[in-house]
Design a protein around this nucleic acid. Structure first.
Length: 209
DNA sequence: GACTTAATTGAGGAGTTGAA
DNA sequence: TTCAACTCCTCAATTAAGTC
C-alpha cells in the first residue's frame, strides 16, 4: 500500500504522466514490470492512449491520497507530459511544483501623509505563472515549457520575468534561474537571444531525452 | 530449512504507427 | 500495402524477503 500511495502521490504531483516516464522515474526494473505495476493500480487511474499510454488519477485515486487536484482530460496533456521530461531531466526534485504563481503586491508610496478617507489608493500588483518551479543548491529554478505557444507570447513572458526578477529574488530569498524547454533548434536560438539579460538556459527536448 | 507471498523477469504475441 | 519498430499485455518461471 505504501508503494501504491507513493506512485499515486507522484502521479498527483505531475498531473498526467506516461508509463514510459513512470518507468524512468520509479526504476521498478524492466519496462514490462513497470507496466504490470501500473496496471495493478488501474482502479485508481484514468487511462488515455495516445502515442503512448498516459495515466492520471481518477476519483478513487484522489480519495486514497486525499488530493483535491482534479485533472480533466484536455489539450494541455502534451504540455504536461513535456514538463515531466524536464522533471526527469532535473532528477525528480522533491519540491517540484506545477503552475506556481509568483505574485508581488506593492503598497503605494506616499510623498506626504495625507490620505482622503474612503478613497482607495491603487495597489500595484504583478504576477507570473511559471509552468514549474523548484529550489536546489541555493537557486530557485523557474521552468517554462514552450510547446505550441506563440513566440510573441514567449517574448512577453520573458519581459515579465525581467520586470519581476528582483521581486522573485526577494520572495524566495534565492537567486533565480530561468529554464526554457522548447521543441526546435530555431525556437531555442530565438529564446536564448530574448533571455540574454537574465540568468537563463534554453534547452530543446531533443537534447534532454 | 521449508514454506508462503510479493516482486521481478523472460518469452511471446497483439495492436498501433510511420516509413518505404 | 507491407514491414519494422515500438508499446503494451498475459502467463509462467525465478528470485527475494518474511515467517514459522
Amino acid at each position: 500500500m505504501n508503494r501504491t500511495e507513493m506512485i499515486l502521490t507522484l502521479i498527483d504531483r505531475l498531473g498526467v504522466v506516461s508509463v514510459r516516464q513512470l518507468h524512468d522515474i520509479l526504476k521498478l526494473g524492466t519496462y514490462r514490470n513497470t507496466c504490470r505495476v501500473i496496471n495493478q493500480l488501474s482502479t485508481y487511474l484514468n487511462v488515455v492512449r495516445s502515442k503512448e499510454k498516459i495515466v492520471y488519477l481518477n476519483k478513487e485515486g484522489r480519495e486514497l491520497i486525499a488530493s483535491n487536484n482534479e485533472v480533466k482530460k484536455s489539450i494541455l496533456f502534451d504540455h504536461m507530459l513535456l514538463a515531466n521530461e524536464a522533471y526527469i531531466y532535473f532528477n525528480c526534485p522533491i519540491d517540484w511544483k506545477r503552475e506556481q504563481i509568483t505574485e508581488v503586491i506593492k503598497e503605494p508610496e506616499y510623498s506626504f501623509r495625507i490620505q482622503v478617507k474612503g478613497l482607495k489608493q491603487a495597489v500595484e500588483s504583478k504576477k507570473i505563472i511559471s509552468d514549474s518551479i523548484f529550489t536546489r543548491n541555493g537557486y530557485v529554478h523557474l521552468i517554462e515549457i514552450d510547446n505550441t505557444r506563440q513566440m510573441s507570447d514567449n517574448l512577453k513572458k520573458i519581459k515579465n520575468y525581467e520586470s519581476m526578477w528582483d521581486d522573485i529574488k526577494q520572495k524566495y530569498k534565492l537567486q533565480p534561474i530561468l529554464y526554457f524547454f522548447t521543441v526546435s533548434e530555431n525556437r531555442k536560438r530565438k529564446l536564448a537571444r530574448a533571455c540574454k539579460s537574465l540568468r537563463a538556459e534554453v534547452l530543446s527536448f531533443s537534447e534532454i531525452k
